[in-house]
Design a protein around this nucleic acid. Sequence first.
DNA 1: TTGACAATAGAACGCATGTTCGATTACAAT
DNA 2: ATTGTAATCGAACATGCGTTCTATTGTCAA
Lengths: 217, 217
Amino acid sequence: MARQTQGAQNDGRQRVLDFITTYITDNNVPPTIREIQAGAKISSTSMVSYYLKDLEKANLLDRYKRRSRGVVINDPHRLSVRDMLSIPIVGRITCGAGPMPTPDADVLRSAEDRVQIARAMVKEGDDLFALVAQGDSMIDALINDGDIVIMKKDSDVKNGELAAVFLTDKNESTLKRVFKEGRRLKLKPENPTLKPFYVDARHAQIQGRVVCVIRQA
Amino acid sequence: MARQTQGAQNDGRQRVLDFITTYITDNNVPPTIREIQAGAKISSTSMVSYYLKDLEKANLLDRYKRRSRGVVINDPHRLSVRDMLSIPIVGRITCGAGPMPTPDADVLRSAEDRVQIARAMVKEGDDLFALVAQGDSMIDALINDGDIVIMKKDSDVKNGELAAVFLTDKNESTLKRVFKEGRRLKLKPENPTLKPFYVDARHAQIQGRVVCVIRQA
DNA sequence: TTGACAATAGAACGCATGTTCGATTACAAT
DNA sequence: ATTGTAATCGAACATGCGTTCTATTGTCAA
C-alpha cells in the first residue's frame, strides 16, 4: 500500500508536471525552476529539482542540463509548431471554364487567408497551395461548394493520382484521377458510381495534384 | 540610396531574425543571446543586442526584458501549440447496419491514432472524436472510403446541420443534413443532385454532428 | 525506541545569460 | 580634413537560473 507521504510527494510531482505542461502551451517556452516553484506551489527550488529528477526518471520529461528553461515534456501526443503547416489560399476553383488560378511567389506571400493543417496529413510540405471550391460542379470528385482543396503544384503526376487537369480543347479544368494509357489519359471521377472517360494526352495539361480536401461544417 | 553599411547591417539583422525563427521551430524554445551570436555569426553579444533592439523597433519581434530566452517572433502567420487539436480516431463508420461507434472516456484516452487539425478549423474544441469512413456507402454525403470524419458528440443539432442519425427502425446510421419539420425529420443528402427524404422523428436518434471532413490523397 | 530512508528547507555556489558602457572604426555629408 | 552618426568591439557587470550541500523533519519497520 502507499505510504502517507507518497501521496503528498505524488501531489507535488503532479503539480509540477501539470504546471510545466500548461506553462508551455501558454507561453511557448518552458518555465524556469523558480517559475515552477511559484506556479506549482513548491516550497523550495531544491524540491522542484527533486521532483524534476523523479519525473525524468519516470520518463515523463527530458532535461537539458545546465540550460535555462531546459525541460521538455515527454509526451508522444504532444504537438509542436513543427507539426503544422500554414498554407495560403490563393483563389477559387469552379472546375468550369478556364484554367484554375496558379500561385506565383507574390500571391503566395501576400495571401491573407490560410489553412493550417498537420504536416502529417501530407507527404510533402513544399509547393502547397489551397483553393476554395465554388459551385456544385465538382460533385463527381466528391468535392462540395466551399471545400478547401489543398494542392501541390506539379506538371506531372503518377498513375492513379487525383489531379487538376486543364483540357485545352474544352478550355476548362477538372479534378479527376489520372491514368496514362499510351497517347490518351483516362480520367476517372472520384465518385465510384460514375464512369471514367478518356482524352487525348496532347489536349490535357496537368496543373497540380490534389493532396488533401477539407470540408468544414 | 542605401549606404554601404546599411546592407551589412540588414544582413546581420536578417541573419539574426532567420536564426531565431529556425531555432524556435527546431528547439521549441527561443535561443539565448549567445546562441544567437554563434548561430547567426555575429561578432559580439552587444551586436546581437543592437540588432535585437532594432528588430523590436521594427515590430518583427517582442522581448521580455531580463528574462532568459525572452524573445518571441512577431509573425501573425506563426502558429503555436494552442492553435492545434489532437483528436482521437475511435473507429470506423460504414453508414450501414448498426449504430456507429461512440466514444467513451476509455476509448478516447487509449486511442493511438489521432488526427491533428487546427483549432481554427472547428468552432468548438471539446467532445470531438474522429471516425474513418469505410466503403462507398456515404457517397451521397460526399464522403469517400478512407475519409476522416471529425464529429462532435451531441444528441441534438440545429436545423440544417450535417449530423449522424441512427434510424432505429432500419437499424442503421447515416450522415445527412437534418431539418426538423414538426414530427418528422427531413434528411437531406450533402450531394445536391440527390433528393431529401423524411423519417419519423421518434425513429431517429441523433448521434453527433459532423464538424469537419478530411480526405487525404 | 531506534535505525533507515524518504521528504523538506534553506541557503549558498557557480555557471548562464541579459545588459550596459566606453572606446574604436567606418562612412557620408560638409 | 572635419564632423556627425551609424556600426562595431570587447569586456565588465548584474541578474537569472540550475545545481548542490547540509541540516532537519517525518514515517515506517524492526
